[in-house]
Design a protein around this nucleic acid. Structure first.
Lengths: 197, 197, 197, 197
DNA sequence: TATGAATGAGTGTTCATTCAT
DNA sequence: AATGAATGAACACTCATTCAT
């Protein structure tokens, strides 16, 4: 007693980050309610009180993960938007490229993706934002004459998000297809449709 | 207090059906874990033991709802499949018709749909089955020369299911669009693509 | 409605007797608390309310079984007592005979025996009564000069009851030995002891 | 209210031991099913969750008590066995001594004894082990010529266990007789029998 | 004589969370 | 920075028992 000794576990930031990481896995695997604080701390080899040193409560850590995803994906969407349309690039290559980057990002954060796309109460808000971003892009491109003008761009954006969601879970996160392939497939279908020329 | 409710000796089948109905609502609203048996029986003006008269446990009633949805939607998919291609019908009208019927069915069972599409552990299995059904149809139609032959039909089916899912939750169940409109929009996009002719 | 029809299940007495019988089995098998009214009525192919037609509650049927056993065994003990010591009979044969009859009775009512010996709150009272009966007999026989006079008859009676109990459960009810054999063994040991002559 | 109880952070082992102790009392008094976890923790001035900190469930703590008794009594039986027959000791004194020790042990652990002898599912197994131990001893002593050779040692062992059981509950645990007296009485009866010399 | 339908009262168990160190 | 010990609050589930017919 009295003697201070070195702190047991590394820096506080490290513990915090570790908890976030493990929590993401737990939530992704079991959903919000079935995820247990006790499991999270066990996974991080920490005690339950320590958890509350870094997060107000279970909801708080979940929200932090939600926000993390939201921030990152929104950043991502904006970045995509700003990419200037280079001279020699076709719409097709540009969209394909953007989608590929998006899928790459999602594939790198599978747990966060599951949280942000499925579990979060904000999930719908997040997707609504995505839809809006995409619709903006499309509107611009329709104006620019790249697409037919009678296109219901919101509808297309919705559909695209639906496709992204589904393919993310059935192909991307199950590692059945690479980001690039998925992006190509989507764009091919969306641009040219199913009919014979 | 004071309000009497049904007489004690109502028909057992009625109570059971009522419980199923309320349970669907509860699960749809809060998810499996957050749904409480106590809420369900309260909603049905019954006591907890009565619940266990009709269902082995919470899991059992959930499974029953899962199965109900699965059975109905599979029935539905098969029926669609068997509809003969009438002489003067185009593929477009036929597919549109089927989608419209599907959305009509989903709109009529919003709680069940939320369960079967989102909550169920079987959700992915169900959707896999849907994808397979659709792919079958598409393969047939590609063979019949209705679509371009280089179509990755599985991919298309996946995309379609993704779109159905998303539009179901953002448009249909929120009553922003009618089944028919959604069906039209999807088919228009999928068949003709986004490009100008 | 209105029309009376024949009663569904035989005479009331029969149902009652059946319930008692099944209940004895249930109690014997699982003990008082773990025995379920629902199991008992199921075993009798009756409904739960019917149970309460014949017995006030679970405790009541148990008590009835307790009393049944107590009455029968006490009857039995008294009968043994009154048997006159016939001229040419030795104490040994008489005691052996009595024990044999007792074991025969117990073997015929295994469930009741388990209840009256183990489960009943009255079990100890019942056994105390047995001890007293036996002690009475012994006192008489010591007086008559059949046994050594420094015998602590209560102690012997206690021991005898202990032996009866144990052998009932380990030999008799498991059908490893016949009443007669057990009686012989006990008497041989008790009368002559373990030492060599 | 008002009474403070132990500080929150008592030693875990203490709490655990306390729970075991109180549980033994509860089980001994009411039997397995009627014993309530809530009573146990109340008796220990702890809360229900604390119970589950130390024991997986109600069954687990009961089993631990069963095992505790079994282990101790078996240890005891073995120890008795190994005691060498000293030169000047008669069989009688040796057996009496062993029995006295046994009763002393049982008297010191009345709750455990009730559990291990009556309540446990293992109760019969435990007693079977006792019978075997005793029979072993007897066989040895018969061989050594201490007892008459036509003795059915298993039967004697069974009888002895029955007597031990009964006298434990009616004399020892009710504090009517001391271990030594009981041991003496048993041995006197068993060795010499009831007849006059 | 009998029961389909229902429930009050409880019981074991779990979880997120906190205190004292 | 970290934790051993503890708990309030809730939840799923069961059982003996009763009402209305």
């Amino acid at each position: 007693m009295g003697e201070r000794g070195r702190p047991k576990g590394a820096s506080g930031e490290e513990s915090r980050a570790l908890l976030l990481e493990i929590a993401a896995k737990e939530f992704a695997q079991h959903g919000y309610h079935a995820a247990k604080v006790s499991s999270i701390v066990k996974g991080a080899s920490l005690s339950q009180p320590t958890f509350y040193l870094y997060f107000k409560n279970k909801e708080a850590i979940f929200e932090e993960l939600e926000n993390l995803f939201q921030r990152r994906i929104m950043e991502f969407m904006k970045k995509s938007r700003l990419q200037p349309m280079l001279e020699h690039t076709t719409v097709q290559t540009r969209i394909t490229h953007n989608l590929k980057e998006l899928f790459t990002f999602l594939a790198k954060n599978p747990d966060l993706t599951r949280i942000g796309f499925y579990l979060s109460t904000k999930a719908s808000a997040i997707k609504v934002q995505m839809v809006e971003q995409i619709q903006d892009n499309l509107d611009f491109e329709v104006d620019a004459g790249y697409f037919r003008s009678n296109l219901d761009t919101q509808m297309v954006a919705e559909c695209l998000v639906g496709m992204i969601e589904r393919l993310t879970f059935t192909q991307l996160l199950l590692e059945k297809k690479e980001p690039e392939m998925i992006a190509n497939d989507i764009v091919d279908l969306l641009l040219f449709g199913m009919l014979k020329k």
